[in-house]
């Protein structure tokens, strides 16, 4: 009994803000006596989610697949180019400032350009996620490749290891923590940009579903899509954070 009470108290201490906002929402809908088309009640949203799981699941699966695939490909590409740039002072001198510039502009603004360039297609959504995940991976891996533990380079030189050995055993491993940061930072934007691209182009997936239901005044479904999108975003962020913690624990 007391165990339950303390647990409830702990829960309240953490979630009073979230609960408060939800209550405000519900209270506001009541107070203004809003029409369900304008503003659905939380309960209606839940009902639509439970009665039509298929449509939510299939669209969410598509968006999630595109986001995950694009994230992996973008990170791989960014890492590869960072390694390439690492081999040459000229290349890194040219590429790193460009990478920094691109990672500090609002990259989602590039989505309309890419959509036009590549055509309205699922592959374009993938390409957009790849490009958006590319820059953090490139910038952070480049930084990581240069952040060797102090003195370790001399040690390897004294051992007479070949440049290749040095790269595999020293340089690459020391870039891993920065790489994990890039993964954590890129995961939510990957999901977001996939959805925004779907929304703008109206192809498929959650973004499309959201746009369609809003156009048809199915507000409960639009909000249901929001809930699923939030869940996916939280899931990706949590997974990336967990992976980062795991790796950091092994690496230090």
């Amino acid at each position: 009994m007391t165990g339950f009470a303390t647990r409830a108290r702990g829960f309240l201490a953490k979630y009073w803000g979230v609960i408060g906002v939800l209550l405000l929402w519900q209270g506001w809908v009541w107070a203004k006596d809003l029409n369900a088309i304008v503003m659905p009640q939380p309960l209606d949203v839940v009902r639509d989610l439970v009665t039509n799981p298929g449509i939510y699941l299939s669209n969410a699966a598509l968006t999630l697949t595109l986001a995950a695939l694009g994230l992996v490909m973008g990170m791989a590409l960014g890492t590869a180019i960072a390694v390439l740039a690492w081999t040459s002072r000229l290349l890194s001198g040219i590429l790193i400032p460009l990478g920094l510039i691109f990672s500090s502009v609002p990259v989602v603004a590039l989505i309309p350009i890419l959509a036009r360039l590549l055509g309205y297609d699922v592959k374009t959504v993938l390409a957009i996620v790849v490009i958006i995940s590319f820059f953090p991976a490139f910038v952070f891996t480049s930084a990581g490749l240069r952040a060797l533990p102090p003195g370790s380079e001399d040690l390897f030189r004294v051992f007479g290891s070949s440049p290749w050995q040095r790269f595999i055993r020293l340089v690459l491993p020391s870039a891993v923590p920065s790489w994990m940061i890039a993964l954590r930072l890129s995961a939510p934007p990957a999901v977001l940009s996939a959805m925004v691209a779907e929304f703008l182009m109206g192809t498929s997936g959650l973004g499309y579903m959201f746009r369609q239901s809003a156009a048809d005044f199915q507000t409960d479904r639009a909000f249901g899509t929001s809930v699923v999108a939030t869940a996916i975003s939280v899931l990706c962020f949590t997974l990336a954070t967990l992976a980062e913690k795991r790796v950091n624990a092994r690496w230090s």
Binding site: A13, Y15, G20, M39, V191, M195, S226, A229, S233, V234
Partner: peptide, 28 residues
């Protein structure tokens, strides 16, 4: 300080909601 966990949680929950999902709320 006692309010901190609640505010932390609220902030990160709001941040986790993708803007595309917040838009309908703001429009209304």
């Amino acid at each position: 300080k006692p309010m901190q966990p609640g505010i932390d949680r609220l902030a990160s929950t709001i941040n986790a909601i993708p803007p595309i999902a917040l838009a309908p709320l703001f429009i209304v």
